[in-house]
Amino acid sequence: MRFMAIIKATPDTEAGVLPTETQLNEMGKFNAELVKAGVLLAGEGLHSSSKGARVKFEGEKRTVVDGPFAETKELIAGFWLLDVKSIDEAIEWVKRVPNFDDGESEIEIRRVFEAEDFGPAFTPEARAAEAALREQIGG
């Protein structure tokens, strides 16, 4: 099963405060543990929302809103994509993420849909469309 561990933003991540060398090392060690255990499929850190944008939808209308965005706790700052046996295993890994922040922060764990979860509703046409998309982004 695949789970995405989503790192929620904090005032620090939103302020673009870069991690110290020690923090980078600690996180590097944790990532190495994930790799050694064979569970890390992918993972990235994200710039603050001030370097992002939102596209809002309303029927045919599209409105672009540039960052930063206010509701810090609802923003995300990075993710890991984990390949594990159960959500409990994902939780156990996430508990081990090094924490440098005395304040509150949060990592949310969500199960990733896999093709078989869609069943017959995921038609060949939908799949083909998705395939074309993945090819574009995946190269």
Partner: peptide, 10 residues
Amino acid sequence: HRAIDAVWRI
């Protein structure tokens, strides 16, 4: 027990 299963797995 669920936590122990996960720890055991790891």
